[in-house]
Nucleic acid binder design. Sequence first.
DNA 1: TGCCCGGTAAACAAAT
DNA 2: AATTTGTTTACCGGGC
Length: 673
Amino acid sequence: MMQESGTEATSNGPANQNGAASVEGGARDARPKSATTLSAVDMAAADLIHLQQHQALQVARQILLQQQQQQQLQPQQGTGLKSPNEKQPSLQVPVSVAMMTPQVITPQQMQQILQQQVLSPQQLQVLLQQQQALMLQQQQLQEFYKKQQEQLHLQLLQQQHAGKQSKEQQQQAQQLAFQQQLMQVQQLQQQHLLNLQRQGLLTIQPGQTTLPLHSLTQGMIPAELQQLWKEVTNVKEENSSSNNSHRGLDLSSPQPPKNPLLNQHASTNGQYMSHSLKREGSTLDDHHHHHSHHSHPLYGHGVCKWPGCEAVFEDFQSFLKHLNNEHALDDRSTAQCRVQMQVVQQLELQLAKDKERLQAMMTHLHVKSTEPKPTPQPLNLVSNVTLSKTAPPEASPPLSLPQTPTTPTAPLTPLSQAHSVITPNSLHHSVGPMRRRYSDKYNMPISPDIVQNKEFYMNAEVRPPFTYASLIRQAILESPEKQLTLNEIYNWFTRMFAYFRRNAATWKNAVRHNLSLHKCFVRVENVKGAVWTVDELEFQKRRPQKISGSPALVKNIQTSLGYGPALSAAFQASMAENNIPLYTTASIGSPTLNSLANAIREEMNGAMDHGNSNGSDSSPGRSPLPAMHHIKEEPLDPEDHEGPLSLVTTANHSPDFDHHRDYDDDQGHDDML
DNA sequence: TGCCCGGTAAACAAAT
DNA sequence: AATTTGTTTACCGGGC
């Protein structure tokens, strides 16, 4: 009862259309319409991006973990080899950590860039390229480290099991190797930074090479990113006004209150101006330009590595040509660039977290010799709490992240019994892609990154690009028992999507409506009430209908998704780029997010599926972006949107819904905080 | 143009 | 008596 009212009534105050929700009689017309279309679309895209990042991050994390391990294990050795600029991380982690981070553009830097209005088309591209290069590097490193890590693991295992033989020697050798790798990484990173500086894209003072960890950790929250992107886009749009003026992300038309500075981009006439800027910065850059040698970050193995583009080229020249023609500055490229930037951003954030995690792990292991059991981690405390509920002691080592500094991790949903290890219910097995692979292996839970995703949805008031039916199904399938009460479903919605924290009367009604309307939702009487379950067959049954083959549809979908093609392409490309097996990666996360990710993928696949759609494997995906119509039609006063958007605030309390009896509805959380 | 979809609004009934 | 939970019907707009 109080839920709905409380929900929106809260801060939106005026100008909100919510009145319509519960009481309006014919207020229907009152419903605002028109404006948000794009933003909504864009956001949907953002969601995807998010997922992508999510996965990419995992990889990055691994790399970092390894790096840190090395450092930790070998604090002293090999010092001489290191570049002079570092102070040698003896014990302080921050330092070492910091060293690794500069490779990606930090939020601050990003802002700088924006502020300087250097976002000319060229620069945007350059930026993108740089970021891409980053990805490549990480990929390489990843592979490399992967091997090493495996060895390390083996060693550890041996040590533990076989007692304390003289493995130490081996380990030392190993460590040396690590050390070397570490240095390599650092060099790469520095190199990269240099590049950026050269391009004039970054203005970093010499001594500033190492950024404070917190700057990264704090990263930007989705909302901020969005704002940033908005800025970026705006700037860009001003230049290339023509195209589709719409699609820009104008979630909140007005500029964000936060970066007033950015607003000045007013008449940025990028093109030329930036050019000069670039020149300026290029002073140091005399030697190689990324163009000079064939090692163009966007060109590899004869293929264009632009997200989503896999064009093949005989020679570098033709590639360049292609790059200029096909990937010139336009809405699409910009969108892709944005995606990439976000990816990077998220990676950065994740890296920071994982570093910290590693740190904890190392600490733990060190201490271990003395007192193995009682892990002293401060974070553990937190995590323990989380785990305690369900978590069997077993695996899960260090886990969760401690810090979570200023991040707006929503305080709500505490826990997660979650991992639930996905009940062996063969239920979802039959379905398409998502279930295959990821669910089999129960994965260990705890994954910090979820928080991020979660945050995204929780913060961004973006209408999720899924139909109610899809979401409901998702909610139900995610539950340990594969069944939920209506209320639990509601809770899931509000937990997972900020969007559903408003207009409760409306969407709840829709949920109910969907539950009873679709055959795929089966109500099961229960001792204390009834629960809803999903008849997967039924569900799948009606999924294939549209999408499967029609190219036209695909096109539409893409369009609907905003930069659909671009994003999805970027999404997938990036994944591939990082060797991130979608499913595998996903499996690491929490069931909830995984599912979400999978759901999205599913939708995407269905939508984009070029080619083999019918038949067996191709995912069922189909209904994609359903309903965003009205979103687009709601002109919502800027205020309306803005408020929510700055969610940081909003996010913090959302508990409104959760309270009462939901003890078990929260399967999906992994937050550790 | 008509059909199908999915979202939204609502009326109503039944269960709490 | 007030809600919540479910069902159903109607209407809309979009895609085809």
